[in-house]
């Protein structure tokens, strides 16, 4: 009986997610160009080529750097913002609203906003004498910065909601003991939101490996591949280089990374018995 209620979800998921995923796995063992009517099975060749392909390796490295950036910068901003908001009396809702606004702005529009601000001739770039999107040393961080602008406010909102679930008595007791806000943050707040923190850490890693929009819109992976991520390499191989089979192998590797992260999370959660 229950599965009757599940049926619509199962059907729509079958066509949009499961079949395309299975097809991608099948393609990844072929040399299909993406447009040809013929393809040959090449076994594991695409996978063995991957790790010798400097573009793939570079993309993977950039994804790791991207993940590190998103585990540190927005997490720190989100935790700070939420902790500060949880301790103020006035304007809390106003600040929360303002911080959240960039999250609802479409990525195509966000990119346009920041392209103008970062412009080396007329924008902030001209004031600082830098070219954030044109300098190979800055470009990846600049794109991550723009992506983060739209992201950190979401973390504030989530962390704030989690912090408000902490028993106020704990803080009162800590204050009696004369604990500084700094101490309170590390000994009460952080442990109190641990499940949320762990979950967002997980999602940050997963989303960092899926990042695509901002790079695609702002730099297309350039200059000189300095902003290439796995997703943009995948996209270019599929559509510019006509190597759909090979690009599917990249997709499968990305999917395996996500699956691995999810599995580790689920196992850890079960072992630690987190109640979320």
């Amino acid at each position: 009986m229950g599965w009757v209620f599940m049926l619509p979800l199962v059907i729509v998921n079958l066509f949009v997610v499961l079949i395309p995923s299975v097809l991608s796995i099948v393609y990844s063992f072929t040399d299909w160009s993406g447009i040809s009517t013929r393809a040959r099975f090449v076994g594991l060749q695409n996978y063995t080529t991957l790790f010798r392909d400097p573009e793939f390796v570079q993309g993977l490295l950039h994804n790791i750097l991207w993940t590190v950036f998103f585990l540190i910068v927005p997490m720190a901003m989100g935790l700070f913002g939420a902790f500060a908001l949880s301790r103020i009396r006035r304007f809390r809702l106003l600040f929360r609203t303002l911080y959240f606004i960039p999250y609802i702005v479409a990525s195509v529009v966000n990119a346009s906003i920041w392209r103008s601000i970062l412009d080396p001739d007329s924008g902030v770039g001209s004031l600082l004498h830098i070219n954030p999107l044109g300098d190979t040393h800055l470009a990846l961080w600049s794109v991550a910065f723009v992506n983060n602008w739209a992201w950190w406010g979401f973390l504030v909102v989530v962390f704030l909601a989690a912090m408000q679930g902490i028993d106020p008595a704990l803080y009162e007791a800590a204050q009696m003991d004369g604990a500084s806000p700094f101490r309170q943050f590390f000994s009460i707040t952080l442990p109190g939101i641990r499940p949320t923190f762990a979950f967002l850490g997980l999602m940050t890693i997963i989303w960092s490996f899926l990042a695509f929009d901002y790079v695609y819109i702002l730099t297309q992976g350039g200059p000189a591949g300095s902003t290439d991520l796995l997703s943009t390499v995948l996209y270019r191989d599929a559509f510019s280089n006509l190597q759909a089979g090979y690009s599917s192998a990249i997709g499968v590797v990305m999917a395996l990374i996500s699956t691995l992260v999810v599995t580790v999370y689920l196992v850890v959660r079960r072992v630690r018995k987190w109640e979320i």
């Binding site: 998921n13 393609y27 899926l210 997709g251 499968v252 996500s258």
Partner: peptide, 14 residues
């Protein structure tokens, strides 16, 4: 897991 797959991968088959 389904909501954490790279969607670009689905473009061609879809």
């Amino acid at each position: 897991i389904a909501s954490s797959l790279p969607t670009q991968m689905f473009l061609v088959p879809l």
